[in-house]
């Protein structure tokens, strides 16, 4: 029995993620020119273990929403709930984040960056080192564990950031345009790898992107937001089967879903 237990805590979790809800979120920013209404009555549900995309015109409040889910920004009105409980601050054990590449700490090696969330929680050195090396292996950086960010390419840095997001085994992973700084080929490859990792542990993922192809390829559901003040225009179920393959991109369904999202964004931008 004891042996079995060891294996379980060691393997990349058996948990299936937690659900996350946004309830009537309205947010105003104080600016030099007065109050700015960024989000208006935003509500949605992200089911446990699903991969949900967030798309919308620039400035519609996607990043702000993500910060709220991470507990780093409190909404003016409404609430974010994880497993029904209101989020009022960071939940490092439940929620992992991946921002754009600049969030890696440049004075730490790839391994130390991946370990960082565990280090903050006071996890034993050997345990966190083992977990970090395993995650780095999984994202194909087994040979670069002792390199600092300035010695890595853009794609490698994002792999490190993804490894860091998964390393502490959170229930929910929030990603804000994690591949935005990468060329198209690299981002396709990384998207594919992300799905691979996700397939193994089925975390709840919220993924902000500007790439509609990426949104359709990765997600179970895509939330389309309006131009500022951000509102949810439509929730689009991505009916493509899993596991996803590149061939699906050439299918009619894929094209229709992509076109539907684009149409919504084009309309809201025109207003």
């Amino acid at each position: 029995m004891a042996g079995l237990k060891m294996v379980r805590t060691d393997s990349v979790a058996a948990s299936a993620g937690a659900d996350l809800r946004a309830e009537n979120i309205t947010h105003m920013f104080d600016t030099d020119d007065g109050a700015l209404l960024a989000l208006k009555d935003v509500s949605f549900t992200v089911e446990a273990g699903t991969f949900v995309g967030l798309v919308g015109p620039s400035g519609c409040g996607k990043s702000s929403l993500l910060l709220m889910m991470a507990g780093l920004l409190l909404p003016t009105d409404g609430r974010i709930a994880v497993r029904g409980e209101t989020v009022s601050g960071p939940l490092p054990e439940d929620i992992g984040v991946v921002f754009q590449e600049s969030s890696l700490l440049p004075w730490k090696t790839a391994r130390e960056n991946v370990e960082f969330p565990l280090y903050l929680r006071g996890v034993d050195r050997q345990v966190r080192e083992k977990a970090a090396l395993k995650m780095l292996d999984l994202v194909g950086l087994g040979e670069f564990t002792e390199r600092r960010p300035h010695e890595l390419s853009g794609g490698m840095k994002q792999r490190v950031a993804i490894a860091r997001g998964f390393c502490q085994d959170p229930e929910i992973l929030l990603m804000d345009e994690p591949f935005a700084a990468l060329d198209e080929q690299t981002r396709m490859t990384l998207g594919d790898e992300l799905l691979h990792i996700w397939d193994q542990n089925k975390k709840t993922v919220v993924f902000v992107t500007h790439s509609l192809t990426e949104a359709v390829f990765l997600c179970d559901k895509v939330l389309v937001m309006s131009a500022r003040p951000g509102q949810i225009l439509k929730e689009i179920d991505i009916t493509l089967p899993r596991p996803r393959t590149y061939e699906m991109m050439a299918t009619e369904t894929f094209g229709q879903l992509r076109a539907e999202i684009w149409e919504l964004i084009r309309e809201t931008q025109a207003k």
Binding site: L67, A70, G71, L72, P90, L91, P92, E93, I95, G96, V97, F99, Q100, S102, S103, L105, W107, F116, P117, Y119, L120, R121, Q168
Partner: peptide, 25 residues
């Protein structure tokens, strides 16, 4: 960078950890 601080806070860094592990280095 505010990105460092944002990430560290999301991962639960205490005030002391922010000073010692982000600001200082």
């Amino acid at each position: 960078s505010s990105d460092f601080l944002k990430t560290a806070r999301a991962y639960g860094a205490s005030r002391r950890q922010l000073y010692l592990d982000i600001y200082l280095p």
